[in-house]
């Protein structure tokens, strides 16, 4: 089974100064699944993502990605791992002085030997795949709407055909129709490419539409992991409130 676990977190502790964000946090992410991370605001969902991607150094515990512990790796080995994942940040984090196409080409230029022509063609394909118009590739991020920026960010995250995709609040701030299209897009890409997706979200609709499993963060660790139905039966006030509230019920059709 162990080769099917892509991310293995054991006894993780992260802290900013005296403020402890996570303590004794364990989590496994299996190959090929979409796992949703939920939890109240400020419970450290995004910090967890930052810890896994190595942007935030854990205070204790271990994080293994693709069976390797990030801290123990050399610069070069880390680069190898980083090529195998794609990250989409909350507000896109596109480079504002590059066009959308150039943004998507950045990882290709950095990590592969693709020619200018081929990487340009591939970038255009990724942009189309992420559901943008062909005309968007020559535009600058500041000329795009919020939804288009998120799609462009997704195209950049997918540039190197990652095996593991981190999405931080992909549908936040989008209208329900665009958000639903985005959910559909993630699901479709996941199926076509066999991706493993680590999805941080607040959106119950997204959870319901896309996730295979859901992990609930709270009290500095993972409260529960399971399918949406298992979680609905889970006895915890926040989880009950979350799925039992009007939005939760509407989204899951109960």
């Amino acid at each position: 089974m162990s080769e099917h676990i892509i991310i293995r977190i054991r006894d993780l502790k992260t802290a900013y100064g005296d403020h402890v964000v996570h303590e004794h946090l364990d989590l496994d992410v299996r190959k090929g699944e979409i796992i949703g991370i939920i939890g109240p605001s400020g419970c450290g969902k995004s910090v967890l993502l930052r810890a896994i991607t190595g942007l935030k150094k854990p205070a204790a515990g271990s994080i293994e990605v693709f069976g390797k512990q990030l801290e123990t790796l050399s610069e070069r080995e880390r680069g190898e791992i980083e090529r195998r994942w794609g990250v989409m940040f909350q507000d896109g984090a596109l480079f504002s002085n590059l066009t959308v196409r150039e943004n998507v080409m950045v990882p290709m230029k950095e990590h592969t030997n693709l020619s200018e022509q081929l990487s340009r063609e591939l970038a255009d394909m990724k942009i189309l795949m992420a559901g943008l118009e062909p005309s968007a590739s020559a535009k600058f991020p500041s000329d795009l709407s919020g939804g288009m920026r998120k799609r462009a960010a997704l195209a950049r995250a997918l540039a190197l055909d990652p095996e593991l995709l981190f999405l931080d609040e992909p549908t936040a701030g989008l209208d329900p129709i665009t958000a639903a299209a985005f959910d559909e897009l993630i699901r479709r890409l996941q199926k076509a490419l066999g991706l493993t997706v680590f999805l941080v979200t607040h959106d119950v609709d997204t959870l319901n539409a896309t996730c295979d499993r859901i992990a609930v963060l709270g009290d500095k660790h993972v409260l529960a992991v399971g399918t949406i139905d298992e979680l609905r039966a889970f006895d915890h006030p926040w989880v009950q409130e979350y799925f039992g509230g009007p939005r939760g019920r509407a989204a899951t059709g109960h």
Partner: peptide
Amino acid sequence: WTVRTVQAVDS
């Protein structure tokens, strides 16, 4: 045929 290898046959 992946993003890392495909350049070899592209031309």
